[in-house]
Nucleic acid binder design. Structure first.
Length: 725
DNA sequence: CGAAAGGCTCTTTTT
DNA sequence: GAGCCTTTCG
């Protein structure tokens, strides 16, 4: 059987070009996953390459799993030997294996963003700065950015200039120290340490280069510099490296993803073969054309020639709602309508949005109508307090140096160990150059020359915690993960503790849910099981747990939607300030990324697209009015199904698409009384004079002349008009 | 030390 | 609207 028979010529070329570097520029829906899987199958089945010697890097664990599934069907053999996963997962594995030579102990724990923030904050304080003046999240993002470019604290300090850099540099240094002391790595370290490992240990690098003679990297447009260097190191010998990406779908620059990686690829590998995949198998012509129109407004891009043999399909629906509640209601109504028509199933529909906060109104509507939905991420399961608490216990059992975990749970449930005690413990530990846990140990069982700075009462409470931990640590060597889990909950009285908090029942359910996750690891050896579990829970992403087979509408951020596809896509919040997000307004490059985000959303759709905006939206408590997104203006009208001006229960069609051209929909809480000659101020158009004002339905139509901006026809309830003079 | 209440700030996207 | 911090009181 010809493994490549099912591919089109371009796909086939990409799959077959196994010798030397290959850059595949794959438009949305062009079958890139297909190419990758077939390429691997071809390598194994036709070229006789052992799966053991192939590494495929994916963007999410879910993508890796799916690829594995597909491969199982293509090659009836062991796929297990393949190295497939995210950069982070693969690097964690490498470091457990070989990290020791660069000072990474195999028992390291991985700090997620919340852990990082708490550690940065501590670093700021311990460096003698004020975390209120230097915002931990801002400092962290600079640190993270530096790590993504393999800039060490020393290098950062050297090149730095200005006060903020000085503070950040010293904090960065301290932060790395604290990580080190905690035997912990953050997300960025996982990558950076491997690059440093390969740089400093040629024989280790050689081992990996010899093993992985074929490399594949998916979503290459979203790799950062460390990742690029890593790939370059690994491919340094055989240069069989195949990267797949689409510059138009690059949406992670804020995570230091660098589009230059694609440009540099052709520079670093001048012999690279470049393959373009431009035929789209996913979307209708109308959808593809809409997407192309949106993306072509970007300046910093090469034009592409996407095409499809699919039919023209339905026109794009642009919908105006007056509030986010109505917007959500519209979505649910429309889903229900499509369902009734028997056109689609629930699972065919997805609602996409720019920010997680937008999911709330949608959820409420879905709940109200009883329409099944699944929220990707929103729960942020692993970020929940109760889940983090239990994980912190398990982490501390696994690695007693983990100070973030220790500080998190030493007084949870309450043991009367307060701030004072903790700062004494910390400074004592620091002065002796030992970990918090070791200091705790010494406080409970003092050695002659080290007198603990605590009174007897404090020592008693500390000892209570210490005894629990010691027992848990000892038992962890023999207990399966679930038994250990149960023992932790029992010994700490966690159930009683959490049941006494608000939403106690629900929180306890989450703890039980975490135990269900733990169960999947219970057939591993005790210590091994714990270690693998802990790594698993920090490296999962929300899409990883996403199950498309569940019969429910998907609620998902545009970022998470990358790589997915749905017959019906609703994109909500197409407003200036939301999509594009307000934070992109002063930076053209960021604005282009917002546009790409919109493009990613639209290209997820196979058959139907709804682009929805709300004239008024609650943001941070207060109500704001936004104009419809500029991206809507780039959709030619022949592709638009007549924008529905959708108004509440009457679901009334106004059949006009010009609403955002002649009018900036907006609303004021107090409607001013207006008559001809009145002077007004509009948030967009500035000062103007009222020409006329007459009632329309329950509203008033106001015609205003804005000097230099023209004469505008506005609806009083929507326009944010302020009367002056 | 801890619980409760009030005040503050900040809101993008996530491996 | 939420999460974090500070203040206050027991």
């Amino acid at each position: 059987m010809d493994i490549l028979a099912a591919l089109n010529p371009a796909q086939r070329e990409a799959a077959e070009a196994i010798n030397g570097p290959v850059l595949i520029l794959a438009g949305p829906g062009s079958g890139k996953t297909r190419v990758i899987t077939h390429r691997i199958a071809y390598l194994v089945k036709v070229c006789g390459i052992s799966p053991h010697r192939i590494m495929a890097v994916t963007f999410t664990n879910k993508a890796a799993r799916e690829m594995e599934e597909r491969l199982k069907k293509l090659i009836s053999g062991s796929v297990k030997e393949l190295t497939m996963g995210t950069f982070h997962a693969i690097c964690a594995r490498i470091l457990r294996q070989d990290g020791r030579v660069v000072g990474v102990e195999p028992r390291f724990v991985i700090y997620d963003r919340a852990d990082q923030l708490s550690l940065v904050k501590r670093a700021i304080k311990e460096t003698g700065f004020d975390p209120k003046q230097y915002i931990p999240s801002a400092v962290l993002s600079v640190i993270s950015n530096s790590k993504s470019q393999v800039i060490t604290p020393e290098a950062f300090i050297q090149r730095g200039s200005g006060n903020f850099d000085e503070v950040t540099g010293r904090t960065y240094e301290k932060y790395q120290q604290l990580l080190n002391q905690s035997n912990a790595l953050d997300f960025d370290d996982l990558l950076m340490k491997v690059v440093q490992l390969f740089d400093s240990q040629p024989e280790v690098l050689d081992k990996y280069q010899e093993r992985y003679i074929h490399l594949l990297v998916d979503e290459f447009q979203d790799t950062n510099l460390v990742q690029y260097r890593l790939v370059k190191q690994l491919a340094g010998k055989y240069r069989n490296v195949c990267v797949v990406g689409d510059p138009d779908q690059s949406i992670y620059s804020w995570r230091s993803a660098d589009l230059r990686n694609i440009m540099n690829f052709e520079k670093d590998y001048p012999e690279a073969r470049v393959v373009l995949l431009e035929q789209n198998y996913r979307s209708t012509k109308a959808i593809l054309e809409t997407a192309s129109n949106i993306i072509s407004a970007n300046q910093e891009r090469k034009p592409t020639q996407l095409w499809t043999e699919n039919k023209q399909g339905e026109l794009i629906n642009i919908v105006s709602a007056s509030t986010q509640q109505e917007e959500a209601q519209y979505v649910v109504n429309e889903v229900e309508r499509l369902l009734r028509q028997g056109e689609v199933r629930l699972a065919d529909c997805a609602v996409m949005y720019r920010t997680n906060a937008q999911s709330r109104a949608l959820e409420e509507a879905f709940i109200r109508y009883g329409t099944p939905y699944k929220l990707v991420a929103g729960t942020r399961f692993y970020e929940r307090r109760e889940v983090k608490d239990v994980i912190a216990y398990l982490r501390l059992i696994h690695n007693q140096q983990d100070s973030v975990s220790l500080l998190r749970i030493i007084n949870i449930p309450q043991r009367s160990i307060g701030e004072r005690t903790l700062s004494q413990l910390a400074s004592w530990a620091n002065s002796l150059g030992i970990s918090h846990y070791r200091a705790l140990q010494l406080a409970v069982n003092p050695e002659d020359d080290k007198q603990p700075p605590f009174n007897p009462r404090t020592i008693r409470v500390l000892s209570g915690f210490y005894e629990i931990m010691e027992e848990l640590i000892i038992r962890s060597r023999e207990l399966g993960l679930v038994e250990l889990f149960n023992l932790v909950v029992k010994k700490t009285g966690y159930r009683e503790y959490i049941m006494n908090t608000t939403d106690g029942e629900e929180r306890w359910e989450n703890v039980l849910e975490l135990r269900t996750v733990a169960r999947q690891y219970s057939d591993l050896e005790p210590v091994e099981g714990l270690s693998v579990f802990l790594e698993g829970v920090t490296l999962v992403s929300d899409v990883d747990t996403y199950d498309e087979s569940v019969g429910a509408v998907t609620l998902i951020t545009l970022h998470q939607a990358k790589g997915l596809e749905f017959p019906v896509v609703f994109i909500v919040g197409l407003e200036e300030g939301i999509l594009p997000h307000i934070r992109s307004f002063d930076d053209p490059a960021q604005m282009e990324e917002e546009r790409r985000l919109c493009y990613v959303g639209v290209t997820r759709a196979k058959k139907r697209v709804y682009l929805i905006y709300a004239l008024r939206r609650n943001l941070m408590g207060s109500s704001t009015a936004n104009s419809p997104s500029r991206f809507l203006k780039d959709i030619p009208s022949h592709l638009i199904a007549g924008a529905d001006l959708w108004r509440g229960e009457e679901s009334q069609l106004r059949g006009s698409i010009s609403c955002w051209e002649s009018d900036t929909p907006a609303i004021t809480i107090d409607l001013p009384e207006l008559k001809a000659g009145d002077r007004v101020i509009h948030s967009q158009f500035g000062r103007g004079v009222v020409v006329s004002c007459h009632p329309v339905n329950d509203d008033s139509e106001v015609v205003v002349a804005f000097p230099g901006m023209g004469v505008k026809k506005l609806l009083l309830s929507f326009a944010r008009l302020e009367k002056v003079g």
